[in-house]
């Protein structure tokens, strides 16, 4: 996919959010194009995760808003965001610990399936077919992130790297147009990070746009098509990695003036 398609997938328009007197986001505007890997970086406390939470509906912004895929996003309704096609992972992994890896991914299919209480009680042909399709899709996704051999293990018993992968598989199960990864490489060693990078590139190749929040500057600069830098809740720059890397304000933000 070309990174220069005219219609952006997501537009943030002057998004503001404050907690008491702390201004976590100051009129942040940015644009994510279809098919790109978009990096969002910044020092600790710069407002990256706050931005994420506003976008995915966990927080209600105090100003501004988002246009996603041609229509505005409704604030304060996380499940709507998933319905519209925004999936996310969490900085501090949030899996359903006492469910198996397979069940975790099956839960991810919830938003794209319909069986209700009546279907479950009657267990009719349509429900059975849907259930079989959910299971098959979940198995396929576990293969996709290469943890199919852990399918029947409880999520909490998976290794750290596998948990990260499982969270991505669960997010992919919702068939997102935009996959948001909140520090997926945190706590990973070099080999795991390289594998993660491969996985992210694969997901993009298969047609999903990716928003990546990351501390690992090397990973972001190597992987992303464009990068935005936040500092003290404000957007510093939004450009291709080569330009961002050389920007004086970014160097200051990271190294201190």
């Amino acid at each position: 996919m070309s990174a220069n398609l005219p219609v952006p997938l997501l537009e943030a328009k002057a998004v503001a959010k404050h907690f008491g007197g702390v201004k976590a986001l100051r009129d942040v505007s940015l644009t994510i194009r279809r098919g790109e890997i978009y990096g969002l970086i910044g020092p600790n406390g710069a407002g990256k995760t706050t931005f994420f939470n506003c976008m995915t509906g966990l927080y209600v912004p105090d100003g501004g808003g988002f246009v996603f895929d041609g229509a505005p996003l409704v604030a304060d309704a996380p499940h709507r965001a998933a319905e519209r096609g925004i999936a996310r992972t969490f900085q501090n992994i949030r899996l359903f610990g006492n469910m198996t890896a397979l069940e975790n991914v099956m839960v991810g299919r919830h938003v794209r399936t319909r069986a209700g209480v009546l279907g479950a009680m009657l267990n009719n042909a349509a429900t059975k077919a849907e259930e079989a399709a959910i299971r098959q899709r979940a198995i396929d996704l576990l293969h996709y992130v290469r943890i199919e051999d852990r399918a029947d293990d409880l999520a909490k018993n998976l290794s750290y790297g596998d948990q990260r992968r499982l969270e991505i598989a669960r997010a992919l199960a919702t068939e997102p147009k935009l996959l948001c990864l909140d520090e997926p490489a945190a706590g990973m060693n070099a080999t795991e990070t390289a594998e993660l990078r491969e996985l992210i590139e694969g997901i993009r190749r298969d047609g999903t746009t990716i928003l990546l929040i990351e501390h690992d500057v090397k990973l972001v600069m190597g992987l992303c098509d464009r990068v935005a830098v936040l500092d003290y809740g404000a957007l510093v720059i939004e450009d291709v990695p080569a330009v961002v890397q050389k920007d004086q304000r970014v160097i200051e933000a990271y190294l201190g003036a």
Partner: peptide
């Protein structure tokens, strides 16, 4: 039947982690 259905899984997901359940669209 409810336990091993789409709805049953959603219930269990809410029990495990409500925020994550919301994030996957429940």
């Amino acid at each position: 039947r409810l336990q091993h259905s789409r709805i049953g899984r959603a219930w269990q997901a809410i029990r495990e982690d409500e925020i994550a359940a919301k994030a996957v669209g429940i």
